[in-house]
Simulated scan of single mutants.
Amino acid sequence: MDKNQLGVQYMQEGKWEEAAKIFNEVIEENPSDPIAYINFGNVLSAVGDDEKALKFYEKAIELDENTAAAYYSAGNIYFSNDQFEQANKMFEMAMKKGLQTSDNYFMLGLTLVQLDQGKFALPYLQRSVELNEEDVEARFQYGLCLAQLELIDEAIVQLEKCVELDQQHADAYYNLGVSYAFKEDAPKAIAMFDKALEIQPDHLLAGHAKKLIESAK
């Protein structure tokens, strides 16, 4: 096992100090290795030092501008700090540099949703689900995006698949309820709100929506 792999193993075990020490050694031994800088940045990000982590990702890009993982990691930091435009640029660069993963498409789609560009987000979220059909959160966000664009029948298909994958997903049941309410199917809508409330009794949106439909009868 090489040192980068050993460092990644330490990270997976939550041994951040040991991981940092190993990646530091890799950088000292081979200062032109962009992967070591990305890995060190990931350690810093995991322990909450986003500012320093970004510097390591920038160094990795400086060493090799085609290091797609550096753009992706930087995008995650910008996203977690609500800097969605910068995040969007980073995820797009990661994609252009060859990172065609479900996670990158998902984050790119999610960023566009945050920027109120749901129509542009849709194909990325769709691609994310195609690449990883078992990803509950990607499927939920895809369904949500379809619903927001008033593609209700398509949204229902995705949200139903979501609750099939995760039977405890209260928000997916709530959004199914909203979708059925939109289609004026009150019994199905109430059944979905009930399911959301059964899983999460303090789901305020589901409780409120159920009361609205019942009072309109």
Rank of each mutant, 00 (worst) to 15 (best):
E28T: 10
P31Y: 08
S32K: 13
D33P: 06
I35V: 13
N39F: 01
N42V: 06
L44D: 03
L44M: 12
S45H: 11
V47I: 15
E51G: 13
A53D: 12
A53K: 11
L54V: 13
F56D: 06
I61G: 12
D64S: 13
D64T: 05
E65I: 08
A69E: 12
Y72A: 08
A74D: 08
G75K: 07
N76W: 02
I77Y: 09
F79R: 08
F79N: 06
S80I: 08
D82Q: 15
D82G: 11
Q83P: 02
F84T: 05
E85M: 04
Q86T: 04
Q86I: 07
Q86E: 14
N88D: 07
K89R: 11
F91M: 10
E92S: 14
M93Y: 11
M93N: 15
A94P: 07
A94G: 11
G98K: 07
G98R: 11
Q100A: 08
Q100D: 14
Q100L: 12
D103F: 07
Y105V: 01
F106D: 00
M107D: 11
M107S: 08
M107A: 10
T111W: 08
L112A: 04
D116P: 02
Q117I: 00
Q117M: 09
K119C: 03
K119H: 04
L122T: 12
P123F: 05
Q126P: 01
L131P: 05
E133S: 15
D135M: 00
A138W: 00
F140S: 00
C145H: 01
C145T: 15
C145L: 14
Q148N: 12
Q148G: 09
L149D: 07
L151I: 15
L151C: 09
D153S: 06
I156C: 14
V157T: 15
V157W: 04
Q158V: 06
Q158A: 15
K161D: 02
V163Q: 01
Q167N: 14
A170L: 01
